[in-house]
Design a protein around this nucleic acid. Structure first.
Lengths: 382, 382
DNA sequence: TACTTATGTCTTGTCAATGGACAAAAGTCC
DNA sequence: GGACTTTTGTCCATTGACAAGACATAAGTA
């Protein structure tokens, strides 16, 4: 946005907090007062913009703040994981107004899972009301770029090509956007905590392993939507590790939460899932801690290459295994294997929980309130 | 460019061959005939646009082609390699009108090297004449993003922070742009052969190893300009391989042309450089062939991760070792280690020679004829 | 109370671009 | 050769968006 001029672009500036007063908008846009007033009136009439508090005076009349009216519609977001799902109803700033969640097996196929999620959505809507402006869904598998469906997922039997947008769109009468969980975690982390980072990578290590990249502020997907899919890189020297994807020796088969659970079970410590592994590590179980550090080192080997190739400013470790022991293993190998230039200004951080939900909301809000889209809707109103 | 309207944007469409007749420009831009005519007149008056041949008739008067006037100025481009440099004088379409080249040790420092290159440039200008619109330089080391100087190069003693643009700009009175050789090879390959690829990676394997990424049509540099710097990732299990960068076990110390030359010398086959290694491989020397395949496999291990992370459409192997034996090694490991989804639509190709020069020309032409820049110059004329 | 700053609302003028109307150029088709 | 098509150029009135300025008002500080 060299010089933002359209109503949609102005709204974007307010929404992202880049300019919150009329004064700031004028200097930022170079528009004349008359034009700016007309634009803002349009936005207020459409219910997109509201007036806020006054700023502190700088000697004269204080500027009145403008804020994006984040209450005039809500977003439905769902995050589907292997054995569990979560749903939230948020306002347009991402604040959660209601949430639901529970055990839900993705392996049961799309219709039972989506039906349950739709129930949650409807219950939350009954609580809160207000019109829905969009639905965002995070899924633990590869998504065809630009389309709301999964393609050839290794762990989502029955979902291949299923029209998720058709199902939910018909029920909620709003656009439905779907993306991979790692991508949405990266988007969520970028928007929530590192909005200025030019390149950010989130690595999710739970039952599987996957990475999401945000480059130049947008999710980077690669030519086939496969970017960041590091979980099924085959490591040398692990011919015994069978992977859910049908292959052998995948990183996910060696160092994921699922793999560690199997290993712990072999050692006489029955564990079924990534979150179970996490509990054992947090409890200080020596075998679990040892395995976590070792898995961190193995993931670190792959991340060393990733960091040299992508040279991101932030590397976030998220998922069940995102805890200090695992991350220590990652850091150890990363700083040993990667170039100083790639690591000197790199921040390695532990991600929050519920990131994918936040990313799904951001995906929806940014699609629905993209400047071009807002301008189109304003034009249609008139 | 949603709807291109400015003169610069129209020129861009013509220059890149997206629209070559007035008719096509009208449908593409939505401008009225009067406006379009005015714009094109401006461009013709500035000498940027020329009329070309007629197209075949479709029943009535045939359309007259428009072409970018690629003869009204020239580009000076130089590609500096470890032991050798090349220079070319090209027209604005990249056609080479003159060239020079020869042995030139980058280790001698910036002034002797740049003085020699400037001599070549001046000799070529004396031959061809015409005004210079820009100078592009490819260097075998990291370049600070957006600035025409090298930072902390492992193999360019004396060049750290040297103002290359100052030296050459003063002599040729034109903007000077500098970038890393791998980046420019990627740009050159993209523009010359794969202009539609959304993500392309070039891996240069000569005396050193480096990769350049073109994502969304632009060189991707990462946050510190270090993206693609895979040559100094440390491989496990090579404590004996000392690298020029001062570290130990780097990929470049194990599998580069320089490393293979040293290995061949140990085996009683004296070889000094990457090009020497290439000669021995091409000559069919069994030890050289074996080493090339093995080095290809080692580079392939890193590239498997790269391909899974970036998911490019094209992977080009370039440099001295870009020949069938080495590439066979790369392919073997790549298809074994990387995900099918990342490799199924991936093309692995051998790059041409002189790619960096082409990339340097493209970098200059695109900077000088960027729409905004063209509009600025047209405004200044009036 | 005087001054400062932010904001709203007119009017007027400027400029770019559209949209016809008209005309000419350069082919094809019969 | 003559009728028809298609591309292109040119002129001009109209439109519409915006800037710029004048004036008014609101809401604070010194």
């Amino acid at each position: 946005m060299a010089t933002p001029t359209s109503a949609g672009e102005l709204l974007q500036l307010v929404r992202t907090g880049q300019a919150t007063t009329r004064k700031a908008l004028r200097t930022r846009s170079g528009l004349s007062r008359s034009t700016l007033t007309a634009r803002l009136e349009q936005l207020q009439a459409a219910g997109l913009l509201a007036e806020g508090d006054q700023e502190d005076s700088t000697g004269g009349r204080p500027a009145r703040q403008l804020r994006f009216d984040d209450q005039h519609a809500v977003v439905l977001a769902a995050s589907i994981d292997t054995m569990h799902a979560e749903a939230a109803l948020t306002d347009l700033s991402g604040r959660r107004l209601a949430r639901r969640g529970g055990a839900l097996r993705v392996a049961d196929g799309p219709e039972p899972v989506l039906a349950r999620i739709a129930e949650w959505f409807e219950a939350m809507l009954a609580e809160v009301g207000r019109p829905v402006c969009g639905v965002g869904v995070s899924v633990p598998g590869p998504v065809e770029p630009g389309r709301a469906r999964v393609t050839q997922p290794p762990i989502m039997p029955g979902w291949d090509g299923y029209p998720i947008d058709g199902y939910l769109g018909a029920r909620f009468g709003a656009p439905v956007l779907v993306d991979n969980d790692a991508n949405l975690m990266a988007l969520g982390e970028h928007r929530a905590r590192y909005p200025d980072s030019a390149a950010l990578v989130v690595v999710k290590v739970s039952t599987g392993i996957g990475a999401g990249l945000v480059i130049g502020g947008e999710v980077y997907r690669g030519v086939d939507g496969g970017a960041g899919d590091i979980g099924h890189i085959r490591l040398p020297g692990h011919p015994e590790a069978r992977c859910l994807c049908g292959s052998v020796g995948c990183l996910a088969a060696v160092a994921s939460g699922g793999a560690l659970a199997a290993r712990l079970t072999e050692l006489g410590l029955p564990t079924t899932s990534g979150s179970g592994v996490r509990e054992r590590i947090v409890a200080g179980e020596p075998a679990a801690v040892r395995l976590a550090e070792s898995a961190g080192r193995q993931v670190g080997e792959v991340l060393a290459t990733l960091v040299c190739v992508v040279n991101p400013g932030v590397l976030v470790i998220a998922g069940d295994l995102a805890e200090p022991h695992f991350v220590a293993g990652v850091r150890e190998v990363l700083y040993r294997r990667a170039l100083p230039r790639a690591t000197q200004s790199l921040r390695v951080e532990i991600g929050g929980r519920g990131l994918a939900l936040g990313g799904a909301v951001a995906m929806v809000v940014e699609a629905v309130f993209a400047p071009a889209e807002v301008d189109r809707r304003l034009a249609a109103r008139a």
